[in-house]
Design a protein around this nucleic acid. Structure first.
Lengths: 203, 203
DNA sequence: CACCATATCTTGACGTTGACAAGATAGCGA
DNA sequence: TCGCTATCTTGTCAACGTCAAGATATGGTG
């Protein structure tokens, strides 16, 4: 897993040393990690800032210093998510099929990020680092799909189709809307499905 | 628009007659309509039960009598949504392409329903009327896609692909993730995109 | 028409939440 | 050593979801 910032990798000792009465050491990261856990358990709205503070062992108002408010925290989560996302797509950028599969894999492996990223009403879209990573990811989608078709008009359609297919599969899988097919490996199934769209064009 | 129950179609007079001190007349419907409005304005989590009660002109605890709690209200919204959804798909069931377009059109025309329906953590999936409508909609998807391919294995893939494509396009469009392409008619664009998947198979 | 059982809605209360303000503490450079 | 600033705590407030108890209307039964 590629994380843009050192996550919960520091030893318990090191944390205990830093953890004096007032200074947590790395509260910002701890709160984000707690948020990711909470989102994994009960969605992007099934928890409270105070609960995250409790999990991190700090007072109820401590998170506000780092994130301002709840939307600020979710903005940080989304920004971090788009970075991990862009990295994952770039690593597969040579092949459209691989990009599509990487899209699905990211959604499943990093579900908490994914559940926030595509819900703009939860956070502030004008965040600079967020926009940068977002454009980086979009660039991979456009260029990898652009290698398939000749004209720019076709290119545009191909990009939207591939993007929609990967995004739709990921969303439906996560929401559990594909009940009978929920057996087996989602990644393999995704690959077969995406091949149905791109297979003909690639021969 | 097809609504499973008489919505805000009754005249203001009729409502005023029924609206005595204690009895609203049709509070259940009024609360659902208020919820749809609120979800349209600020998403499925950007409002409160008390706000809906205020909009309907009743006390803060009145909605609880009809829906139990917030999840109960959202369950009613989702159930109603799946009914409208199933009706819309059934009306286009003759052609896979039309079904896909109807899928996207529903998401855009009935955005509040759509935003709740595919977020299972918001409501109670075990609701009977919800499950019935849900299976009805799924049946249209499977049978319409099944007319394309010969074998059952191919059929399964085709169904998932078409479903994912339509669902992904709708989700991305609603979230505003397709910025540069956001000009023009989404329905026409959706038709072009879906044709990219099914066009080859149908000749 | 009188009566009452029941559905519907109100009032009041409790614990929790997000947000803000003011104060306390720690780390760090001058 | 001093003081500046980032970091965290404590206290507070209105708003929220939910529950309990009471009030009122409606429709059926006699």
């Amino acid at each position: 897993m590629v994380s843009p910032a050192p996550s919960n990798t520091e030893s318990a000792e090191a944390r205990q040393i830093k953890q004096t009465a007032y200074h947590h050491g790395n509260l910002r990261r701890a709160i984000i990690d707690a948020a990711l856990e909470a989102i994994m358990e009960s969605g992007p709205a099934g928890w409270s800032l105070r609960e995250l503070a409790r999990r991190a062992g700090v007072s109820h108002a401590a998170p506000a210093h780092h994130f301002g408010d709840k939307a600020g925290l979710l903005t940080a989560v989304a920004a971090e998510g788009f970075e991990v996302f862009a990295n994952a797509l770039e690593r597969a950028a040579d092949d459209v099929l691989d990009v599509g599969v990487a899209y699905v894999r990211f959604a499943i492996d990093h579900r908490p990020y994914f559940e926030v990223m595509f819900r703009p009403e939860l956070y502030r879209m004008d965040d600079p680092s967020l926009q940068t990573a977002r454009e980086r990811a979009a660039h991979v989608l456009v260029t990898s799909a652009g290698r398939l078709s000749p004209g720019p008009a076709q290119n545009r359609l191909t990009t939207i189709a591939g993007w929609s297919l990967a995004h739709g599969f990921a969303s439906l899988w996560l929401s559990g809307a594909l009940p009978e097919t929920a057996h087996g490996d989602p990644e393999a199934l995704a690959r077969s499905v995406i091949r149905l769209l791109f297979g003909t064009t690639r021969g």
